[in-house]
């Protein structure tokens, strides 16, 4: 432990300097010294013992009370010394935990990854950003042999790691039911059964499932309590809510979902989102759906992907770069 002896020597020097002239310079040395002792994990009780031995070596006729008082101080500082060591260990543990979560987030990214399909006549843009490390939102695209495009968007009530774990299950449940893909209502009904059976009763999932058939230009959809999206009619330049009734997934085993249809004309758009989008909070409260429409209109001249990217960036800026909830926005735009 030569470093430690060295530090005791340094303390002696620094203290002697200060006792000589009480200068600011000497105090600054003291401040620098404490940075060094922290670096070397010297605990407070050791510093007091340095202090005491320096005094004893420097002065022959110190009143014994002074030395006794330092022993007392040393005893009092023991608790701080223990707390200090505990703090160091907890800091280390936190670092470990953080890197573990980062790895988990990468794993999740790979697990839940989805490719945006290329469909003639339909432009698709999607963005999904977690509020913390792991995403409790989920979106997925599927394309079948008839060129029909299925789009799923889901949101677990809650965020962070529990929500993210839950989402992995949705993804695998979806992968295992390809035969229902043509009927959004049956997709939701099957998933509801899976969620009801496998998920903690306190956890609920909202989900929207839609299917676009390019041969008929019909968009069929159903919703399990999910934040309603928008339908944009290019002919009238009007936005309407894409409302659909339905209970959240996981509430009731035998829930039936209603299925809706919408004809998508040229230039029309479907906008889907998680509640992280509408719950963007500014200093004046949540943004209004009206405000969101304004942002969509402002970016309408762009491609679907550029639109979602831009809207995300603008809303992120609006909330001073602090997301409170996972944010997912999808735009489907018919361009022929």
């Amino acid at each position: 432990m030569e470093a430690r002896e060295n530090l005791e020597e340094k303390y002696r020097e620094a203290l002697s300097n200060y006792l000589k002239d009480q200068s600011e310079q000497a105090l600054y040395q003291g401040q620098k010294y404490s940075r060094k002792t922290i670096e070397h994990k010297i605990s407070p009780e050791e510093i007091i013992s340095f202090h005491k031995s320096t005094l004893m070596d420097t002065y022959d006729n110190l009143p014994p009370e002074v030395l006794h008082s330092l022993d007392f101080l040393l005893e009092v500082m023991m608790g701080y010394g223990i707390a200090y060591r505990e703090h160091q260990n907890l800091k280390h543990l936190q670092q470990e935990l953080k890197s573990e979560i980062e790895i988990a987030a990468n794993v999740q990214h790979t697990l839940l990854g989805t490719d945006i399909p290329e469909v003639g006549g339909l432009e698709i843009g999607a963005v999904s950003v977690p509020a913390k490390h792991m995403n409790g939102d989920y979106y997925h695209f599927v394309q079948d042999e008839n060129q029909c495009v299925g789009v799923a968007i889901a949101d677990v009530i809650g965020k962070g790691i529990p929500a993210a774990l839950c989402m992995s299950m949705i993804k695998y449940a979806m992968d295992s039911l390809p035969e229902h893909r043509h009927f959004p209502k049956s997709v939701l009904e099957s998933l509801n059964r899976v969620v009801e059976r496998n998920v903690d009763p306190s956890m609920f999932i909202t989900m929207f499932y839609g299917l676009f058939d390019p041969s008929t230009s019909i968009f069929t959809y159903a919703s399990a309590g999910h934040e309603p999206g928008f339908y944009y009619n290019a002919a009238t330049k009007e936005f309407t809510d894409l409302t659909a009734k339905g209970l959240l997934l996981g509430v009731e085993k035998k829930t039936q979902y209603e299925q809706y249809e919408k004809h998508i004309g040229s230039g029309d758009m479907i906008v889907l989102m998680s509640d992280g989008v509408t719950e963007c909070r500014t200093s004046e409260g949540f943004i209004e759906r009206k405000t969101l429409i304004e942002y969509i209109e402002k970016n309408m001249h762009l491609s679907a992907q550029e639109m979602v990217n831009n809207i995300y960036k603008q809303l992120e800026k609006l909330q001073h770069f602090q997301l409170r909830d996972d944010f997912t926005l999808i735009i489907l735009k018919r361009n022929v």
Partner: peptide, 11 residues
């Protein structure tokens, strides 16, 4: 044992 270690042991 020195004073610091004495204090550690008694704590």
């Amino acid at each position: 044992f020195g004073t610091v270690d004495q204090a550690r042991i008694t704590t």
